[in-house]
Design a protein around this nucleic acid. Sequence first.
DNA 1: CGGTTCCTTGAGGATGATCAACGAGGGTGG
DNA 2: CCACCCTCGTTGATCATCCTCAAGGAACCG
Lengths: 197, 197
Amino acid sequence: MQIDIDLLYSCGAVAKKYKKHEVIFDEGEAANFYYQILDGSVRMYNSNEEGKEFTQGLFYAGDSFGEPPLFINETYPSKAIAIQDSTILKLSKDKFLKIIDENPSIQKYFLNLFAHKIHSKAKTSKEIINQKPEYRIISFLNSFKKKTEHPDEKTLIPFTRQEIADFTGLRVETVIRAFTKLNQSHKVEIIHHKIYY
Amino acid sequence: MQIDIDLLYSCGAVAKKYKKHEVIFDEGEAANFYYQILDGSVRMYNSNEEGKEFTQGLFYAGDSFGEPPLFINETYPSKAIAIQDSTILKLSKDKFLKIIDENPSIQKYFLNLFAHKIHSKAKTSKEIINQKPEYRIISFLNSFKKKTEHPDEKTLIPFTRQEIADFTGLRVETVIRAFTKLNQSHKVEIIHHKIYY
DNA sequence: CGGTTCCTTGAGGATGATCAACGAGGGTGG
DNA sequence: CCACCCTCGTTGATCATCCTCAAGGAACCG
């Protein structure tokens, strides 16, 4: 689900193309637009001085992202970049809020979307505390699995170890060592360096 | 702001008293009620096998808590207990959702509330990654300060070191040692064991 | 004053981060 | 088809730091 694309266009939304790695908005910027992905994918993340990163979320075609600050006059808490060449609809904050105001069903949709986000962020912080790298990784894998079509059977995890490190706030080497352990204890399967879970 | 108390009563809400430390709901339970605090205070937190805790949020008179799961058919990601003897209004999920449905202004209120929650949780996870205990603590102090009346002047931090440890996912001793450092570098002031920031 | 609860300190150990080096795979252009 | 490059994966050694455990001190309250 999402806001109807024709409705967005009719309100003045513009499709903008972003190159791979192009910055969509940066941490600390004021929020002036509603973004909805037509095609491609987006990563929201933070990085600190030492180059350590933490991924707040990944978004794909059909998803919107960076909405909460639009409602509360806050700056973006994270940076957003295109992971690949992407096309993204941009709608000004005012128009977006007007759409929300006039469409109860859309308002309700965002209420549910936000409830999901809160729930998943609560789970994330909970897991981060569980220092053990293996726990963090498994819970990341679980949260990913929930979005896939076949959560029961073993699926290929389409992330590099570095990406998983950024998701979990760990270092690559730590992730690798954790995976060899998880492999040994048959919690995951590793075939030709590819991870199945 | 909150849902009008008379409206809640008229929809069948019941005020229930909780003793200090009494459990309001537990992690993994189904969400069946909307809770709004008339008097007292509530802590939402997770704990792991080794007794380590992580505080997801503190709530005071006038606040509601544990709403997101009501919208999305998920269980509670954390446990909620009364910090002190408290009186809390309970309204069944169905009635709550009906109120939301029928009152656009309340729906809007929750949209804003949720946006705030997402924003603050995003900031929290971002800080947790910054391993350094001092960073974590300072950012916790900042988030606390923002809620107080006089964010400019030094105020007494009304938490024990253990509580701050639970908020930040650290151990008491680590918190204590971090505070002595923060004191030495004049980031905080400690007088008679009391923390001012 | 006796009992809690909270705070503090020190020593030792565990573990993830860091640094450095190398291996493996995939794609590209000559 | 091969040489090259670039990204990703892997491993070992060392380091820094937070946790753990243990013990005691300080503040507060009845």
